[in-house]
Design a protein around this nucleic acid. Structure first.
Lengths: 240, 240
DNA sequence: CGATAGTTTGACACAGCTCAATAGGCGTGG
DNA sequence: CCACGCCTATTGAGCTGTGTCAAACTATCG
């Protein structure tokens, strides 16, 4: 399956892959794509499984094909902070470091396309496009991290929860605008995860969600399925 | 002065420049260095002056030669968060974006070596080394941002202030260890800036500094000159 | 020496945390 | 099919760390 090359030169493995367009693989020419596809493999990980352990040697990189991955850091006494969420078709991995000080865990069931660290680094040396793409993704992550620092440092609990819902909503549908109809999505995180992402306790998260519910801004079914009834008012509460 | 080339091929402008070794210029060969030096100029900015305005078109990049630059973001109602500090010989600027959503301001008096955006981007297309160096710097900033997210989201006020002092101390002397003698440094930020960096109020920052003082862990002279008397205890209070 | 800006200190309020009890969803097994 | 246990989320009551507001202090500089 993996060596079977399509007439256009696109490996079968990659034919319908989102990462080939919007992900890092978009930077690769046909030969590089073939070379990388030869050593790549798609696989799935269940929600909760650890993808990259803290202080663990990183041997491979991945593209996220579906699902959500949470990146977190933990203090010695157990306090935890989620420092980033990654969605398809993001690249997962920290180039040029032997050890990651970050824990990557599947927040939902995820499917990945993984390849050895060395393979990617070899291609990176050959073709400048890949490094450029990685720089772009890293800059995007840096922008997001800094944006979130404002949320962590300066927003109230109510604003934090609204900001989180907006972040998810915009990832489901990037074109989300105030004039659109009610939009609906499944929360990719548990209350505990949301709390760890927002620097709050689960009780505070729960209370703020309840407040948004009783104020008619959102509805929640089965604890996870959120419908935003009024995007304007949600944005207004996000402190933006 | 700027076109006068030294026999080794190193422009005079760059001869004693720290950025040529540890900064992005270290990635440049002699020709590129000459080309960039031709359009570069060193200049100084007073503490408090704005280097890159929020939502302002960015026309040039810089290397920081001395001093400290603070990167901040502001909410519409004026709440502010410092999302990063940059020290010599860091690169200052956000590649590939027409607009920066970040405000860069001189926290202390700074000296810079600036060059047009286009010049750097031209060189980047030619030599891969530069883009590699920029990726490295961006990854470092991302690591720092995520580390700080833990501080913002999960640490107490006391731990935040201790973490801040450690951050500065380690930037003054990267080899700072517990066994070293008392180390001393000038705080590059006002209490207001420290508060905006830590997501606290100035009063809380002040009270925590007082506590560290009365507990004999630090001494402060002239509001800015800090001596860490006991590095161990400072580290212990940082929550690491 | 007065003016100004930055910092510290105090008294009090409140947002968010802690601890505890309750409720809901879901799978297992009788 | 119900009973039970488990896990997650919600709700409540009270506490506390940090914010707010106000006043006093200090350094710097004309």
């Amino acid at each position: 399956m993996r060596e079977d090359i399509h007439s256009t030169g696109i490996p079968v493995l990659c034919a319908s892959c989102e990462a080939r367009h919007k992900g890092v693989c978009g930077a690769l020419g046909p030969e590089d794509l073939v070379a990388l596809a030869k050593v790549s493999y798609k696989h799935k990980a269940r929600s909760g499984s650890e993808l990259v352990g803290d202080a663990e040697e990183v041997e491979s990189y991945s593209n996220i094909l579906s699902g959500v991955v949470k990146l977190s850091k933990t203090l010695s006494d157990g306090r935890q902070q989620i420092v980033g969420l990654q969605f398809a078709p993001d690249f997962l991995g920290r180039p040029f470091k032997v050890e990651s000080e970050i824990n990557a865990e599947a927040a939902t069931d995820v499917s990945l396309c993984s390849f050895p660290k060395a393979a990617l680094e070899r291609i990176m040396n050959q073709s400048q496009g890949l490094e450029h793409r990685l720089l772009q993704q890293t800059l995007k992550e840096l922008d997001e991290a800094r944006e979130w620092m404002v949320t962590l440092g300066r927003k109230t609990a109510a604003e934090k929860v609204a900001s989180f819902l907006l972040l998810i909503a915009r990832n489901i549908d990037p074109a989300v605008g105030p004039d659109k109809a009610a939009i609906q999505f499944e929360l990719p995180l548990t209350r505990t995860d949301i709390a760890d992402f927002l620097g709050l306790t689960i009780e505070t998260v729960s209370r703020q969600l309840t407040k948004l519910r009783t104020d008619g801004i959102i509805t929640i079914e089965h604890n996870r399925l959120v419908t935003v009834e009024n995007m304007d008012r949600l944005v207004a509460r996000s402190g933006a």
